[in-house]
């Protein structure tokens, strides 16, 4: 017996939101097919406050002009937590985004969101992953109170949970990470970096900052240290990793292991159809601190992937191993077994 299958709901085309640490990377991302790029100012107002990275006001203005000329959007991350008694540079950053006609600002701090909603009513607000809004009640709090239009979901939920969240919070949009560096802790709720170095993602915009990193060559290989703590040792034949605290090797119960996570990168190319069906509005690629070559390769791959899924074609088989950390990939928290 044959029965007609109900036609599947038409898939919504997700926006591809791509990282740009410099104007050159912004152009690379857009030329490779980004719908949006996200950027930050060259100071501690954003969570990728890395040496030599990010945009000054002139560069942002030019970047926005270039993006808009190609039909792409520019989102600006002002996603650290303003210092008590000194909120001025954060307020200035939000005001400049409004003035330069950024398509949205990505904010994490309640106080700053409150300020933005009051003083810049026409500026579109996105909730940063650093706010760690992991459930519908938290998300609705930001939407009802401040008119947040989109929330970047913390990397703690499974695809199934994301679908359930989307069903409960519509029409608030969700954005999820599809590729790149992977926080294994709930973002914005992690003080590991400041515990070791005094520099924190929330306050200073840098996790495991380069200023506190040291590599030492020994006869056995390379030792990487952060704030004086050994984070890992690599044999000469082993691929090395950046000493991000949660990707280090530690001893627990007398056994050395990657206790928190291996040096690895999130890669969801294989589960893109599931994420699209979960009703996600935008796919985010991590890596403002990576170069143009990374941006071009990853954006190109995900452009092909998303377009293939929407056209009902099979997923392209694209090898991104060579640009992932430790040459390894994971689908992270999107699959329950990861927990």
């Amino acid at each position: 017996m044959t029965t007609a299958q109900p036609a599947p709901a038409p898939l919504t085309r997700p926006e591809l939101v791509c990282p740009a640490g410099t104007p050159a990377a912004l152009k690379s991302a857009i030329d490779a097919g980004a719908d949006c790029v996200y950027v930050g100012f060259r100071d501690e107002t954003n969570a990728r406050n890395f040496p030599g990275l990010n945009f000054n006001r002139r560069e942002l203005a030019e970047g926005i002009e270039y993006a808009h000329g190609k039909g792409a959007k520019v989102l600006v991350a002002v996603n650290t937590f303003p210092r008590a008694g000194q909120p001025e540079i954060w307020h200035r950053a939000v005001a400049d985004c409004d003035e330069l006609k950024a398509d949205a600002v990505i904010l994490a701090d309640i106080g700053l969101i409150d300020h933005a909603a009051r003083h810049h009513p026409n500026l579109r607000l996105h909730l940063s992953v650093q706010a760690a809004a992991s459930n519908p009640d938290a998300i609705r709090f930001y939407a009802d109170r401040y008119g947040i239009k989109r929330v970047v979901l913390p990397r703690v939920l499974t695809v199934q949970e994301i679908a359930e969240v989307n069903a409960r919070i519509a029409p608030i949009e969700t954005e999820v990470f599809v590729f790149g560096g992977l926080c294994v802790m709930a973002e914005g709720r992690c003080a590991l970096s400041s515990y070791a170095t005094g520099q924190s993602p929330n306050i200073n915009g840098a996790c495991s900052p380069a200023s506190d990193v040291r590599y030492t060559e020994t006869n056995e290989g390379i030792t990487s240290e952060l704030g004086g703590f050994t984070i890992n040792k690599f044999a000469h034949t082993e691929p090395a990793g950046y000493p991000t605290l949660c990707k280090g090797r530690f001893i627990a119960n007398d056994k050395a292991s990657y206790l928190f996570e291996e040096p690895t990168s999130l890669n969801t190319l294989a589960i893109l159809p599931d994420l699209i069906r979960a009703g996600v509005t935008a796919f985010k690629i991590e890596g403002r601190q990576r170069g143009r070559a990374y941006v071009a390769a990853v954006v190109g791959a995900f452009r092909q992937g998303v377009d293939a899924v929407l056209a009902g074609k099979s997923l392209p088989d694209i090898d991104l191993d060579r640009i992932t950390e430790g040459g390894k990939q994971t689908t992270g928290a999107y699959e329950k077994a990861w927990r």
């Binding site: 410099t22 030599g52 380069a210 990193v213 590599y215 990576r290 990374y294 390769a297 060579r322 040459g327």
Partner: peptide, 30 residues
């Protein structure tokens, strides 16, 4: 090419003050 990837695979080795190298890498890439 991606500087991080080169570093991960050891085709590039940096020694000394990591911060200034990262700054230079970003400045040149940008």
């Amino acid at each position: 090419v991606d500087g991080d990837a080169l570093f991960f695979t050891r085709r590039l080795v940096i020694e000394g003050d990591t911060e200034v190298v990262v700054a230079l890498r970003n400045a040149i890439d940008g």
